[in-house]
Design a protein around this nucleic acid. Sequence first.
DNA 1: GTCTATAGGGGGATAGAC
DNA 2: GTCTATCCCCCTATAGAC
Lengths: 231, 231
Amino acid sequence: MSVTLGQPPAAYAPDRPRSSSTREALLDAAEQLLVEHGVAGTSTRAIIKAAGANLGAVNYHFGTKEDLVLEVFARRLRPLNQDRISRLNALEAEAQEQPVPLEKLVEAIVRPSVEARETQPGTTMALFRLICRGFQDPNPQLKAFLNKECAEFATRIDSALLRALPWLPPQELVWRERFLFGALNHGLDSWVHFDNLPHPNPEMQPMRPDREGFIHRMVSFIAAGLSAPIA
Amino acid sequence: MSVTLGQPPAAYAPDRPRSSSTREALLDAAEQLLVEHGVAGTSTRAIIKAAGANLGAVNYHFGTKEDLVLEVFARRLRPLNQDRISRLNALEAEAQEQPVPLEKLVEAIVRPSVEARETQPGTTMALFRLICRGFQDPNPQLKAFLNKECAEFATRIDSALLRALPWLPPQELVWRERFLFGALNHGLDSWVHFDNLPHPNPEMQPMRPDREGFIHRMVSFIAAGLSAPIA
DNA sequence: GTCTATAGGGGGATAGAC
DNA sequence: GTCTATCCCCCTATAGAC
């Protein structure tokens, strides 16, 4: 029952987005689906379908679904934290042994997240939403992996903040940093997925600030919180 | 091949926690599993197994898995927001037409979350973690449902905060409230699931404050952030 | 109200052809 | 490196007995 003999094997989805390889296509497709549906809500089959690949390719390139998911996170987190560390290096070089001003440090945390779209080709803002959620994911392995990826930057920012806030006991900084990252993650999520739902109070109908306006608002709130007097 | 004829039908898990009904058992079991594994990571079968019930019971009492999940949230959110509104009423009565001080308002937001375990019998602290994650769940229906459940309190706290911060444009408050709830959710999550992982800097090895200490730290940070000067 | 049985659809992983 | 076929599992929802 052979027909049209000699026809070359056709790609299954000839108009799928072209990536440099199947591996990249899988990562790109997985990233978008994870953003939309979360880790537990995304199946390997959905990923391969969106990537125009097949089940075997996941096993070949990543081993398991979980390894693929971790690489999706790592691919974006590595340059993000590198950017943060570079900014910290620049600030500390500029300050010449003096403590770096608090607002500058907070900006070094916040800005790379907001600007990732521009500094990392292919990154969508929605990606950061995924990272935010990852830190609260029920899967403890994912949480541990993300913490490991951020460990170097975390150590650096800890000591810089302690120098900027010399009157603050280190034990207090630990908790304030957690509030900081909560505000950052949730605020960024709100900004990226801004939905102009009608507000009961028309005066408070939210407006979406531009990038610099958003960074400024975030830095102001966080710097004030970090500087709060202690009892 | 019948054996031990006449033996009464045994419960599948005779030592399971006794609730007032199958319905309550399902809600209790679902709540714990949702906290541990998230919405997409929790199956109806896992719920019925933990509750010592059967698949039909879910359909009978709730209709679908999703309806069960929404009721798990609603059962805890209703009294939580009632508590917040009651505190707000008391503060406004006490202030007699004057604006309520900012710290008092923030405490009315924070304290019911932290104290839910005591004011709502059966509530575990972990439950709040679930609610926090629900607001970032990929399922938009869940997010919309939670927003609806919190709408009354949200309206009330908006106007109270605007009175306490008369110099702050309402448009600015909108964003600061989002930072607020991010800090609250993430901070509470850290406190409830405090894991004493070794910190690279021994000085910053975190200690878990008691309930009042935690509320105080949270209120200080948030009140300072809300009061930050505007450009 | 409670339970069993079953329908009907995906799920992850892998073996082995090409 | 890529793909198909397949194993065996778990999923939700429902029909209908008790």
